[in-house]
C-alpha cells in the first residue's frame, strides 16, 4: 500500500513537470511569435526603403520609397564592382571615391512617395553585383539606421 502511494506521488510529479514543460513551450512559442510580429511591424515602419528597379544593363534605376515621418536627410551609398565606373547619375552624387568605388548621395527634403535615382555605368552591370545601402538617423532614438537596398 505504501509503495502504491509512493508510485502515485511519482506519477503526479511527472505529470506536473510535463505540464510545466508544456506551458513553457507554449510561452516560448508565443514569445517567438510576438517577436516575429514586432519585427514585421517594425520593418513595415521603416520610413525609407530602396530597391533596384532594373536587374541588368548600363542604365539602372534605384527606387527610394519614403513614408511619413520622412527623415530630414538620407544618405544613399553605392559600391561599384571592380572595373565599373559611374559615368552619370541623376541626381548627381555628393561624394565619389573612385579608388574605393564608392558613391554617395545626400538626399535632403524627401517628400513621402517614391523617388528615382538614375545611374549610368561605364558598362553593363548586374544589380546583384552592386552593393547599396540607405542611411538615416532614427527620429525616435537618434541613432544611425542602415538598411541594404533590395534587389
Amino acid at each position: 500500500m505504501k509503495h502504491e502511494k509512493y508510485h502515485f506521488c511519482r506519477q503526479r510529479g511527472s505529470r506536473g513537470s510535463l505540464l510545466v514543460v508544456r506551458h513553457l513551450m507554449r510561452f516560448i512559442v508565443a514569445f517567438i511569435m510576438c517577436m516575429v510580429l514586432c519585427a514585421g511591424v517594425y520593418a513595415g515602419n521603416d520610413p525609407v526603403t530602396a530597391k533596384f528597379k532594373d536587374k541588368k544593363g548600363k542604365r539602372i534605376a534605384v527606387l527610394v520609397k519614403a513614408s511619413s515621418p520622412v527623415p530630414g536627410s538620407v544618405i544613399f551609398t553605392l559600391k561599384l564592382p571592380a572595373g565599373v565606373k559611374l559615368e552619370k547619375a541623376s541626381p548627381e552624387p555628393g561624394k565619389y571615391d573612385t579608388n574605393r568605388g564608392e558613391v554617395k548621395w545626400l538626399l535632403r527634403g524627401l517628400s513621402p512617395g517614391t523617388h528615382k535615382i538614375k545611374l549610368n555605368f561605364s558598362k553593363n552591370v548586374n544589380s546583384d553585383d552592386l552593393q547599396a545601402e540607405i542611411r538615416y538617423l532614427n527620429s525616435v532614438t537618434g541613432k544611425l539606421s542602415i538598411f541594404p537596398v533590395g534587389k
Binding site: 527623415p71 530630414g72 544618405i75 554617395k104 545626400l106 542611411r135
Partner: peptide
C-alpha cells in the same frame, strides 16, 4: 562622416 553630416542636416 555620414552620421555627423546627417546629424547636422537633420
Amino acid at each position: 562622416d555620414d552620421e555627423e553630416i546627417l546629424r547636422v542636416f537633420d
